[in-house]
Design a protein around this nucleic acid. Structure first.
Length: 574
RNA sequence: CCGCCCAUAGCUCAAUUGGAUAGAGCAUCCGCCUUCUAAGCGGAAGGUUCCAGGUUCGAGCCCUGGUGGGCGGACCA
């Protein structure tokens, strides 16, 4: 149940009865401080401005028409016209009791989520982390809400580099090398290839010729290319699995898949008068994005040599997603540096009719991962950090910490837990920061097991599970009536009730850090509750014990669900 | 030259999108374990929200102008 929504309905009705126009929102919000109640309605002030009346009088009028019987104990008008709402404990208790995840969705949409989309020429590196895990978290949230989510991994498998790479592969195979062995380390392979390309003109010519041959369907080049792609894709799928990310083979829709459609897109743009020739290239001038001098933004869709660019394949992808996938909404988790490009593609897609106004096009950009020095995260020698190496280090660090702190876990348990903690820590550190900003990657902070980190939340979960083990109760089947007496019980109940509202917010705006903050606050509220409200200790009456166990059970479920939506696993012990 | 983004406690980050006295964690200091996992809890201290104006009942958030930093902008993605 969404309390805010309920209050909103009641306040809207009261405001209407008080003669306030419908456009005025009750402006409901959680109260920041206990002395301002649990929720507050700030709409009286906005409405008073509009009606040119006294806000406090208007607030009184709203209260006269407001029916919150059985929901609120007390209502008060404060300050310039705030209405403070004190919820009844009985209402809270019953609300928590039927706080079970809602079934179905009144307005399910088909939502395409474009995320991860690495370039297959090289191994995945830290630059791919954010798109991969933020996009995945949002996809999970949308699925939880009952939408049809279509994940699209727009892998880069078709650029100029591939001519160079297949020429290198051909060379190494001719020297008797096995494909699997040659491609064992994609990074090394890429460097060898680049070296040949730069130093050997003959090789470079072959490479350039192979790009053209590949794209025109030459069988030999195609076979070599497929060998390479196969290895690279397998590498990526392995990373996804390690990351507990819901991307598999079926979600891959690479650039090459649009190859046959690029000429069609160009022809169509030309026919519509959008693409015109300029300096030998085919470009689209976008007056909508003109600067203050009136110069339109330029988007090249075909090079003067005849080659297509990513703007072209992005437009082809747009058409596919709208027409074939039936998208109502398309989300792009792509680096903030491509904001202009996204704007151009969106504008062109609208003008060409590839995406009607009814289809939401949303670029959800994100900032860069920085090192502790405030510069982009690199290895000590200044190279790119491979994602595979980063994950190995995360698990190793987690394992060391577990061994330091713990004695009664088996070796196998430690291995399994270290994986969940290490990967969880790395993902959570990223997801918990505001998506659009750069953030500083700090091993110690994310692994510290203190504060707003994955280990803290995982620990909170295991603590609750431990209570049930101790009491020899199966939480799954446990169910008891909730009784809210202590302030910590109320605070915990309030937090539990905010889950769905938070989910709505993440779904509409695509900021997973809101969910992170929520789970952290929920876990903190539990820790506080747990310290002040004994459960299994001597002297706790039966009714309180049952009620507190019920609160604990629902907290553990909500933490687990919240973390699950973030793609982070929990465990029974740690 | 044009355009986009950022600036909040010593550090890392929040602030329910215009709401009341700007909140957490780390670090520092003070308390709490023979009792449900102390990887925890309670408390103290820490702020001219980069600067200057403006809008209004009310601004970290909106507008204007600066300062400082990052990133984009005709043939890579």
């Amino acid at each position: 149940m969404r309390i805010k929504e309920l209050l909103n309905q009641r306040f809207s009705a009261a405001m209407q009865a008080a003669g306030i126009p419908n456009e005025c929102s009750p402006a409901l919000a959680l109260s920041g401080k206990p002395q301002f109640g649990d929720y507050q309605a700030n709409g009286a002030m906005g409405a008073a401005k509009r009606l040119k009346t006294n806000p406090r009088d208007l607030a009184t009028k709203i209260l006269d028409n407001l029916d919150l019987d059985g929901i609120a104990d007390k209502l008060e008008i404060a300050g310039p016209g705030f209405i403070n709402i004190y919820l009844s404990s009985k209402f809270l208790a019953s609300a928590v009791a039927d706080n079970a995840p809602k079934s179905g969705n009144h307005n399910p949409q088909t939502i395409v989520v474009d995320y991860s989309s690495p370039n297959l020429a090289k191994e995945m590196h830290v630059g791919h982390l954010r798109s991969t895990i933020i996009g995945d978290a949002v996809a999970r949230v949308l699925e939880y809400q009952g939408h049809k989510v279509v994940r699209q991994n727009h892998m880069g498998d078709w650029g100029t580099q591939f001519g160079m790479l297949i020429a290198e592969l051909e060379l190494q195979l001719s020297e008797g090398e096995q494909a699997e062995l040659a491609l064992n380390d994609l990074e090394v392979f890429y460097q060898q290839s680049k070296k040949h390309f730069d130093e050997d003109p003959e090789f470079a010519d072959t490479a350039r010729a192979y790009v053209v041959k590949l794209q025109s369907g030459d069988q030999h080049c195609r076979t070599l290319w497929q060998k390479f792609i196969q290895v690279s894709v397998a590498h990526n799928l392995d990373i996804y699995q390690q990351l507990n990310v819901g991307l598999s083979r079926e979600h891959i829709m690479p650039e090459s898949a649009y190859n046959d459609d690029l000429q069609n897109v160009l022809d169509d743009l030309t026919a519509k008068g959008l693409a015109v020739e300029s300096d030998g290239a085919k470009v689209v001038f976008l007056e909508e994005l003109a600067d203050k001098n009136g110069d339109p933004s330029v988007m090249i869709v075909q090079k003067s040599g005849g080659g297509f660019l990513y703007a072209t394949s992005d437009l082809a992808a747009m058409r596919y997603r709208v027409n074939k996938l039936g998208a109502d909404r398309i989300l792009f988790y792509i680096d903030a540096r491509q904001s202009l490009h996204m704007k151009q593609v969106f504008t062109a897609a609208r003008k060409a009719g590839y995406a009607p106004e009814t289809v939401g096009l949303e670029h959800h950009p994100f900032g860069t991962m920085m090192g502790k020095d405030g510069r982009p995260f690199k290895t000590r020698s200044g190279g790119t950090v491979k994602l595979a190496d980063l994950l190995v280090e995360a698990v190793e660090r987690a394992e060391r910490l577990l061994r330091d702190k713990n004695t009664d876990l088996s070796d196998d348990d430690i291995k399994i837990i270290a994986r969940k903690v290490g990967i969880g820590a790395i993902k959570y550190a990223d997801l918990s920061k505001t998506r659009t900003n750069d953030y500083i990657f700090d091993w110690d902070a994310m692994m510290s097991f203190e504060g707003n980190t994955a280990p803290y939340l995982q620990y909170a979960y295991t603590r609750i599970r431990s209570i049930f083990r101790k009491a020899n109760i199966d939480p799954q089947s446990f169910n008891a009536e909730i009784n809210i007496i202590e302030p910590q019980e109320k605070a915990l109940a309030m937090k539990l009730l905010q889950f769905e509202e938070i989910i709505d917010q993440v779904a509409s705006e695509g900021y997973p850090h809101i969910l992170c903050n929520y789970v952290y606050e929920l876990a903190s509220a539990f820790m506080s509750f747990y310290e002040h409200c004994p459960i299994l200790k001597d002297g706790v009456d039966e009714q309180s014990q049952q009620s507190r166990l019920q609160l604990s059970k629902q907290t553990s479920e909500t933490i687990a669900k919240g973390l699950d939506l973030l793609g982070i696993e929990v465990m029974e012990k740690m």
